[in-house]
């Protein structure tokens, strides 16, 4: 997949899924997208501030209706504690990109430092053979830097999945606590 195909015009939604930390769950979750043939543009799994609870941050390209239905089916998984669909304006989100360019290309009079500074990036390392630049931002921003650096003869480019936190006030810890305190096996909380 090259960066051009990532720059899509399909609506995209961010799903934030809180799960028990269990091997195989990634498969369980992605199956729900793949059976509907929904393409994922990014996926990130990380620990949370609550021990034993992981967060999947998934960016899917599909309609809102499908995103909601998929989210409901993910929530249904036994090891999933909660799943939420967000539009971009409901979250703070970032991705990180790394660009490896040949050192000699920079030495040929190009003003790399200006480029780095103007794009809010930073130089991660400088080696005899290559320089690695790191940039955090939205996809459009990391893509813009990609276009600038491409003429240098990019050796490698990689971009992480999206990570996001919601603008909602509910804390993950409080949410998990609410689940734990739910009366026996009755689901009594509304937005889960």
């Amino acid at each position: 997949m090259n960066t051009e195909t990532l720059m899509n015009t399909e609506p995209q939604y961010t799903l934030s899924v809180l799960t028990e930390d269990r091997a195989g769950l990634l498969n369980n979750i992605t199956l729900i997208f793949s059976r509907r043939k929904i393409n994922l543009s990014s996926l990130n799994v990380s620990s949370t501030e609550v021990p034993g609870i992981s967060r999947f941050t998934i960016v899917a390209e599909c309609t809102r209706d499908r995103a909601d239905k998929v989210c409901a089916q993910i929530r249904k998984l036994v090891d999933v504690a909660g799943a939420f669909v967000y539009e971009d304006h409901e979250i703070y989100y970032q991705e990180i990109a790394l660009y490896k360019i040949p050192t000699d290309a920079v030495l040929n009079g190009q003003n790399l430092e200006n480029i780095v500074r103007n794009n809010g990036a930073r130089i991660l390392c400088v080696e005899a053979h290559h320089i690695v630049i790191e940039k955090t931002g939205h996809k459009e921003e990391t893509h813009a830097l990609y276009e600038i650096l491409e003429p240098f003869g990019l050796l490698e480019f990689v971009r992480s999945g999206r990570v996001a936190v919601s603008k909602s006030l509910r804390r993950t810890e409080a949410y998990i606590k609410e689940l734990e305190e739910s009366n026996s096996n009755v689901l009594s909380i509304k937005n889960y």
Partner: peptide
């Protein structure tokens, strides 16, 4: 087993 925190099968 009587309860799993991530699986509350009886919605109120």
């Amino acid at each position: 087993c009587t309860r799993i925190r991530s699986y509350l099968p009886y919605p109120q």
